[in-house]
């Protein structure tokens, strides 16, 4: 039984881990600051304090938040579509080997092709406003599909035999056995795909230049050699990415906990 002393020890261990991480981050921030001072050329490298100050200035403007919301919204649409489509295709592929064989080269190509090639190609098909939606979908789809399919294929044959015996079939089998077995694979897939979709979506915006997006601001920073802006927008991208990953990890952990703990 876990007593109060065990809980205190666990809490102490966690605090120590966070303290070590913080020290490491502070160390690299110090290195960054020292390097900026040594180079002493804002166009090449700006220090962390100046970047934070610039980010602070941007954060009080409506355009900053509108750009983040527009970029995030479009990437989210592509990402969610990829998750839904990936799960559906994996379910079909696990059931019908022809579907699996047909999709294998397509998913392989999606994984291997450079994102820049897709961006240029997709720009010929859709307007730049919708570019990041398609790119986020293309990035996330093979990851979700592959992981969920693997989860389904790794489902314990003994459990399926047990279901046959107890006559648990169809949707009941999916929600009681497959969902339980595939959930860890799904969780890993959505967490990994989220970061990739977000970064690729922003990269697509830099090429496609849709209005009021993070990508457009990054492009402007490059054109006007505005290094503080470049760093500030990049920092904003990183913060959003970390926040999204933490959010999805928490939400998935909470959902899995509820799923597992139900009586």
């Amino acid at each position: 039984m876990a007593g109060p002393s065990n809980k205190n020890a666990e809490k102490g261990g966690r605090l120590r881990t966070w303290a070590v991480r913080l020290v490491c981050v502070l160390f690299w921030l110090a290195v960054w600051g020292l390097a900026a001072r040594a180079i002493h050329a804002r166009i090449i490298l700006v220090g962390p304090l100046e970047v934070l100050a610039r980010l602070g200035n941007l954060a009080v403007t409506g355009e900053f938040w509108a750009s983040i919301a527009i970029s995030l919204g479009r990437v989210a649409v592509g990402y969610v579509s990829a998750v839904v489509l990936g799960v559906a295709l994996a379910a079909f592929a696990s059931r019908f080997s022809l579907v699996r064989e047909l999709l294998a080269p397509l998913m392989g190509a999606l994984k291997a092709t450079p994102v820049a090639s897709f961006v240029i190609l997709v720009l010929l098909w859709v307007s730049s406003r919708h570019l990041s939606i398609v790119i986020a979908l293309i990035m996330a789809l093979p990851i979700v599909y592959t992981n969920v399919l693997e989860g389904i294929r790794q489902t314990d044959a003994g459990l399926l035999e047990m279901c046959d015996l107890f006559d648990v079939r169809g949707w009941d089998r999916v929600r009681l056995v497959y969902a339980s077995e595939v959930l860890p694979y799904f969780r890993a897939a959505v967490t990994l795909a989220l970061g990739l979709s977000w970064k690729a979506g922003i990269a697509a915006e830099v090429i496609g230049l849709p209005d009021f997006t993070i990508g457009e601001h990054l492009y402007d920073a490059k054109v006007y050699l505005d290094t503080p802006d470049l760093f500030a927008w990049t920092l904003a991208v990183i913060v959003v990415s970390v926040a999204l990953e933490a959010l999805i990890t928490r939400v998935m952990g909470w959902a899995m906990g509820r799923w597992e703990a139900r009586p």
Binding site: F166, L176, V177, S180, R262
Partner: peptide, 24 residues
Amino acid sequence: GMTFQEDRLCENLTATANIRLPRP
């Protein structure tokens, strides 16, 4: 109904959820 030589339980579900599995 059968008790196999191996337990054949859904690892991520509670005991009650596993016991209730044949009555979905």
